[in-house]
């Protein structure tokens, strides 16, 4: 007997021969299982939702700026790079949101993350207001290595894509029909408390996370 068969046989034996197991599993997989309670903080609407998103992202040590339209992004990014003493360059993927813009003084290069990457820019598919979390989909539009190799990671997020919480997020995610290799939830910049039990930002991932909320 293969290891697979041996393991499954032991699980089946423990499960017993109860009727209706297949039906119970199929129902749950079809989304008809019991629903866990939906926290109040995952039910925000309208302007309050955007405020909650911002507050939660800040609580997780991200910084957030609101800009009116995507056309304002290059200037806003240039100002941020200057304020942070970073060179006027940024690495991005091929997201249509970035490709059509006039980047002016900022030198934008396209491609995957490299060993030294002072500033990277990605577009998040969605935001989750309940925890100030970004949801990014990997692929040519937004290579996953940009999310982890940038010393400072900039993320653009249209306000229309800010969801209240996991419930409406999963529904919207399924509706968009994406199938990336990774779905990356990001809540603040990377951190570690492994030296001296003291929390420090910037472990292996970005030292800083800045979100441009567009619209």
């Amino acid at each position: 007997m293969s290891a697979r068969e041996a393991i499954l046989a032991r699980v089946r034996k423990a499960a017993g021969g109860a009727e209706g197991r297949e039906a119970a599993v199929a129902a749950r997989l079809a989304g008809n299982g019991p629903h866990a309670p939906r926290p109040a903080q995952a039910r925000s609407e309208g302007a309050a939702r955007l405020e909650l998103f911002e507050a939660k992202a800040r609580a997780a040590d991200a910084t957030v700026a609101r800009i009116a339209t995507v056309a304002d992004l290059p200037a806003a990014l240039a100002a941020e790079l200057r304020a942070r003493n970073l060179p006027a360059t940024v690495r991005t993927g091929a997201d249509p949101l970035f490709v059509g813009l006039d980047w002016g003084a900022v030198e934008r290069t396209e491609g995957v993350g490299r060993l030294e990457e002072p500033a990277t820019l990605s577009r998040a598919e969605f935001g989750l207001a309940e925890t100030g979390t970004l949801a990014l989909a990997s692929g040519p539009m937004n290579p996953v290595t940009l999310t982890f190799l940038g010393e400072t990671h900039f993320v653009a997020l249209p306000t229309a894509d800010v969801m209240a919480g996991f419930e409406d997020f999963w529904a919207a995610w399924r509706a968009r029909g994406l199938d990336p290799r990774t779905l990356n939830f990001v809540t603040g910049p990377s951190r570690s408390a492994d030296i001296g039990q003291t929390l420090q930002l910037g472990a292996h991932g970005p030292v800083a996370l800045h979100i441009f909320l567009i619209g």
Partner: peptide, 22 residues
């Protein structure tokens, strides 16, 4: 005590044909 850890990653399969990394 965090509401979410910094990185929660859902991975499915190897990189896609069009993917530049992974």
């Amino acid at each position: 005590g965090q509401e979410m850890s910094v990185y929660t990653t859902f991975s499915r399969g190897p990189r896609r044909a069009e993917d530049p990394d992974g």
